[in-house]
């Protein structure tokens, strides 16, 4: 894979949080360098509190970085997420970077099938086709069909998480950020998700993920990425 062009190049990334009310500054990440190519799955390797989720969120532009560059191959060019305008950032998220969070956050009362289809519909795909693809994914993730017409608010944690995963996978982004996608799933469903992810990875999707389960790591990671211990600055 080393001959393919990187899809992500992180250079000297630093992130801290200044909490004005408490008068503290928390330096979480500093000097992070990372290169990722298509078909690679990098699993972040560090104990809790070392900034794994922070790095993932910074890569998605959810957290704004203090220093450094986050270069993403978007529409053929390397663009810097860290300095992108809101409009460009939203476009990159629509087309290039997908994110699986631990929680499903959606407008209440919208049916599951529409929630999953929405990323495709927002790219202009016909609603019927978007719903058909959503149904395919929900089937692959074994979410019972009787739930598709319902809003996910009353679903179990594992059901909601599969809706979340389907929504993140449907747009086939070339780069996926995964924040413990299998954490709330039973073994069987976790296996389904991992198989789906491995399939995507082998087809060329690049991934950066957080997986605590050793079994999950073994099956999905092509490489581990250690994070140094964070420092508390004044």
């Amino acid at each position: 894979m080393s001959d393919t062009l990187p899809i992500l190049e992180v250079e000297g990334l630093a992130k801290s949080f200044t909490l004005h009310a408490q008068g503290v500054r928390l330096a979480v990440l500093d000097g992070i360098d990372l290169v990722l190519r298509p078909g690679e799955c990098v699993v972040l390797d560090a104990p809790s509190g070392h900034g794994k989720s922070t790095l993932l969120r910074a890569l998605y532009g959810n957290y704004r970085s203090d220093r450094g560059r986050i270069l993403i191959r978007h529409r053929g060019d390397m663009v810097d997420m860290a300095s992108a305008s809101p409009r460009l950032l939203l476009e990159i998220r629509r087309e290039t970077i997908g994110y699986v969070s631990q929680f499903l956050r959606v407008i209440p009362r919208v049916p599951t099938l529409d929630i999953v289809a929405e990323p495709l519909a927002s790219r202009g795909l016909a609603p019927i086709e978007a719903r058909r693809r959503a149904a395919e994914l929900l089937t692959a993730l074994a979410l019972p069909e009787r739930l598709w017409r319902l809003a996910p608010a009353t679903f179990s944690g594992g059901e909601q998480q599969r809706v979340n995963i389907a929504r993140a996978l449907i747009a086939a982004h070339p780069l996926l950020l995964l924040d413990e996608p299998t954490a709330s799933l039973d073994t069987e469903n976790a296996g389904r998700v991992l198989a789906l992810l491995a399939e995507r990875r082998d087809a060329g999707t690049a991934m950066v993920g957080i997986f605590h389960d050793p079994e999950a790591r073994r099956s999905i990671a092509t490489r581990l990425f250690p994070l140094p211990e964070r420092t508390l600055a004044a």
Binding site: F17, T18, H20, A21, R57, G61, N62, Y63, R64, P86, L89, L90
Partner: peptide, 14 residues
């Protein structure tokens, strides 16, 4: 100002 989730999840201004 910024993308909505940026401002809400990583607010900078006091």
């Amino acid at each position: 100002s910024g993308v909505t989730d940026q401002v809400l999840d990583d607010p900078h201004h006091p």
